[in-house]
């Protein structure tokens, strides 16, 4: 009986203590920010090879969030028509859909993926399926190069 009371009290106590970490203005994901160099997306786009394999920090509006697993966010660039995906390890960091439209700062390794036309079709098909949209394979017109940040941490305001 005493053991039960002790365990129950402990769980309730822990839940109450854990609550303040849930709220707040900004939420930290993963390792947070470690002090890497902040790079504008327009600079990354202008000379991507200079940043490949380096840890970079980017800032921007969250345009989209992985609708199923929360395993990536898409950040808007400092200029129109530019965005970049920050991919994180499945289940380790989970971004919520309500992050859309908020300001985020993310850090991670800047990477490049070169897809053949076949891989590009599969990639775009997967993207459409995640959003529950129809996919037209003819919309892919050749091989695709994707620049992405393999995210280690982020702060969303």
């Amino acid at each position: 009986m005493r053991l039960s009371v002790l365990l129950c009290t402990s769980f309730v106590f822990a839940t109450v203590l854990a609550l303040p970490a849930v709220g707040g203005e900004a939420t930290t994901y993963g390792e947070g920010l470690t002090g890497s160099e902040t790079v504008k997306l327009s600079e990354l786009r202008a000379d991507p090879d200079a940043y490949l394999g380096k840890t970079v920090r980017v800032e921007g509006l969250v345009l989209d969030v992985c609708p199923k697993r929360g395993c990536w966010i898409e950040l808007a660039g400092d200029e129109e028509f530019q965005s970049i995906r920050v991919k994180v390890e499945d289940g380790v960091i989970v971004f919520p859909p309500e992050a859309k439209g908020r300001k985020a700062i993310a850090e991670g390794l800047f990477t490049k993926r070169e897809l053949t036309e076949e891989q590009a079709v599969a990639w775009q098909k997967h993207q459409a399926e995640e959003r529950g949209l129809e996919f037209d394979p003819s919309s892919v017109d050749g091989p695709l190069t994707i620049y992405m940040i393999m995210g280690t941490g982020a702060i969303i305001h």
Binding site: L7, S10, F11, A14, T15, L17, A18, A21, V22, G91, V94
Partner: peptide
Amino acid sequence: FLHLNHAKGIWTWLADVY
């Protein structure tokens, strides 16, 4: 939230006790 330990902090220890 509890199962995936998004609360972190003291909940980690409580989950260990569990």
